[in-house]
Write a protein that binds this DNA or RNA. Structure first.
Lengths: 198, 198
DNA sequence: TTTATTATGACTGACTGTCGGTCATTTATC
DNA sequence: GATAAATGACCGACAGTCAGTCATAATAAA
């Protein structure tokens, strides 16, 4: 009998070996043949593990997001101030270290908007839900600790979207040069209103 | 002398005759040949007026945005309350009547994120700047009229991005079912904090 | 225990159809 | 006949397929 490969693992291996290529060049400029060559497999093999080019990006994002979440969790556990936590939470949208992940994320959003593949939408939904619940929890904890007013919880979804909106606007236009600055202005201004005075 | 056609006008005519096709099918599913046939011109002619498929969408969006702006201006002139104005301003992201424009806008954002064409980025930047200044002006007027606190102006850019962020999230995920509801919650909550009590 | 047989998953790259984009030619007008 | 406009045949590139090869291990025969 033949060797049975771990399909899921090989999918990950191939995807990861293409990671750099996706970051340096855009999806649009890459061909399946190039990617296959990079991964060291035949073109046909690519189609045994991925539906198409977009699906490869999907896998890369999937892997990197899991890693990113673990890291963010650790990063947040060191902070106690709610305001600071929110800022840390949003730093994905501008921090130097997440630059390449952002590049991929940008492309993934673009794919999601056009291809409308069920599986990818589900992934995006799950991502959104997870991060949103996480973000909401930070606010709730701030409320419970008496740092911010109870009403703040109603900002959860919208405020969460603000980060995403600023990010999209910054990559699609030149109108927002400094996402970090804009986010900080917004959060600082908001906190002047929702912070409980001691 | 031969016929001299109004290049700019013909570009608009061709683009507009493709409008419906772009709304019903996505860009991805359409070929230049199809679009040329729809516009009643040869395939080569398309390339006399457009750089590529994306450029056609660009022209359609351009035309529709100008029309949309005029309409929005009229819509806003009837309203005096700042809160109401902001809500009207944002209704592009959920109103039934702008549905098809949103479909195109969504695709255009997707294109902008991937192709990074200089001209399109400039258009997006101009759009963003215009709408943002418009939005900012609404806030400033509210401040001048004593409806909302002066600090509110710092929310301009971020709040503007909130609308965009909720929209993107709603089309890329199933996590936001009702953009109108979410926006209203956000604006109402914010106004409880920034509204000047009489 | 060794060797031969065989079943099957893994893998491949030549091939095909499609489509974006070009250009030589034709058409229309003055 | 000069020039602008329009065209569709043509080309190259690429996504995706598929017929065929290979490697392995379970089993059978010696």
């Amino acid at each position: 009998m033949p060797i049975i490969v771990d399909k899921a693992q090989k999918r990950k291996d191939i995807a990861l070996s293409c990671k750099e290529l996706f970051i340096t060049h855009g999806i649009k400029d890459l061909t399946i043949s190039q990617l296959a060559k990079t991964a060291g497999v035949g073109k046909g093999t690519m189609y045994d593990y991925f539906k198409n080019k977009e699906d490869i990006v999907f896998e890369v994002i999937n892997i990197l997001m899991v890693k990113h979440n673990l890291h963010k969790e650790k990063e947040l556990s060191d902070i106690s101030s709610t305001k600071e936590k929110i800022k840390i939470f949003f730093n994905f949208f501008y921090s130097k270290k997440d630059e390449s992940l952002r590049t991929l994320y940008k492309e993934f959003i673009s794919i999601s908007l056009i291809t409308a593949n069920e599986e990818m939408i589900d992934f995006q939904t799950t991502c959104f839900e997870n991060y949103y619940q996480w973000f909401r929890q930070i606010l709730q904890e701030g409320i419970d600790k008496g740092e911010i007013i109870p009403h703040s919880i109603h900002f959860a979804k919208g405020l969460f979207a603000t980060g995403e909106g600023l990010f999209i606007a910054s990559v699609a236009t030149k109108a927002i040069a400094d996402v970090e600055k804009e986010l900080n202005i917004y959060i600082d201004t908001l906190f002047q209103l929702i912070e409980v005075k001691k």
